[in-house]
Design a binder for these strands. Structure first.
Length: 121
RNA sequence: CCAGACGGCUGGACGGCCGCGGCGUUCUCACGAGCGUCGAGGAAAGUCCGGGCUCCACGGAAACACGGUGCCGGGUAACGCCCGGCGGGGGCGACCCCAGGGACAGUGCCACAGAGAGCAGACCGCCAUGACCUGUCAUGGCAAGGGUGAAAGGGUGCGGUAAGAGCGCACCGCGCGGCUGGUAACAGCGGCGGCAUGGCAAACCCCACCGGGAGCAAGACCAAAUAGGGAUGGCAGCAGGCGCAAGUCUGCAGAACUGUUUCCGGUUCGUCAUCCGGGUCGGUCGCGCGAGGCGUCCAGCGAUGGGCGUCCCAGAGGAAUGGCCGUCCAGCUCAGCAAUGAGUGGACAGAACCCGGCUUACAGGCCGUCUGGCACC
């Protein structure tokens, strides 16, 4: 897995654990959930429910979140945590720069913003 | 040129930066990295039919039940699909639409209205005779006309009659049987009958034909853990033997169940380790050469079939096939006489075992064939 050392969450149990941690922040473009991870690196997963739209729209929302995560998390995410990015209704259409600001603000509000590269941990 | 009918194709293009999945290859002990190559649809959708494939059931056949199909011929692996015809209906026409077997096998239903709705019937009427208060009543005949209804027991015309009526005749319709054409559905022709047999089969039903069930979360394999199971060994209560010890052997106990109870019997045992077995999370396969795509020739009205050549063409598994930006061609909106300028900006929609169909959704664009007008020669 590339993306600068960020792995994907692949099991339902991992998603449920992150959701149960109840450490989340909702912004217009996305919803961020986080929890201390079981591995040393940081991992990320994506969720797009039927509320977002039909299958095509959900796919687009998930891909935009993937691109965003690949851009920001390797540089600024705190290692040792798992993140789940949840798509909202505006995720497929929101301006990409605004979406980027949303993710950065969400990381800072959860006090998980880090200027150290994750790969250095 | 205008209006229309039918069939087919397409459904953004180019570039930059950063990425993802499969396969191949090189390097590396390995993790990985580099390079190459391929990577969503006509509907991938709804899951409505038909198959392949897998497991389950099943001795064969028939019958019954249930479900489906329903003009004829052809195509196909098969179909409820497709093609070509037939019949009925619509349109000036190209063409379009049709659940299109059987109502003398039987049962049932036909609301309301109306006199009468299935062994027909007589409200208003029409006609004859009689009576009297001279325009009514009584009796009888009739079913043409009116009225009701989705439908009133053939239709139109002539004859006929007191008035009428298939009462008679002609034509049409209907039924029966015949000849001709056609593979057939059916069509045409002439003959006979004499109105008898209204509609609904998408109410039951009858006839003919077809049909085992469940589905890739099918199914096969590897295999942490847990429950329960099996084998072997050790340890565990008391006493004793052997032995320096580790340990080992014998006897007696204990608990539970069972035979009504006692005696006497029978069966079972706690714990640890290893292995077998089991099969969950997880993993591997199934899972991509196929009723395959493209080109071309032949047969056929066509669906389709055959020959030759050529290509290998997605394979994920919280699920790749993308994210961002720029330019442009269509389109739309606004301004303008126009040239043009500004803004906006791609329809429906995302494979999940695979094929053949059907159905549903779909901005815009392109091509072909044909029909009816108008104009010109």
């Amino acid at each position: 897995m590339a993306s600068g050392g960020v792995e994907r969450l692949r099991r339902r149990a991992d998603y449920l654990r992150v959701q149960a941690a109840e450490r989340r922040i909702a912004l217009p473009g996305l919803l961020l959930q986080a929890a201390p991870g079981e591995t040393g690196c940081c991992r990320v997963g994506f969720t797009a429910s039927r509320k977002v739209g039909n299958a095509v729209t959900r796919n687009r929302a998930r891909r935009r979140l993937k691109a965003l995560a690949g851009e920001i998390l390797p540089k600024h995410a705190t290692p040792g945590h798992d993140y789940v990015l949840v798509a909202r209704r505006d995720t497929p259409v929101r301006d990409y720069a605004a979406l980027r600001r949303d993710l950065e603000a969400a990381l800072k509000k959860l006090r998980l913003w880090s200027d150290l590269p994750a790969g250095a941990a």
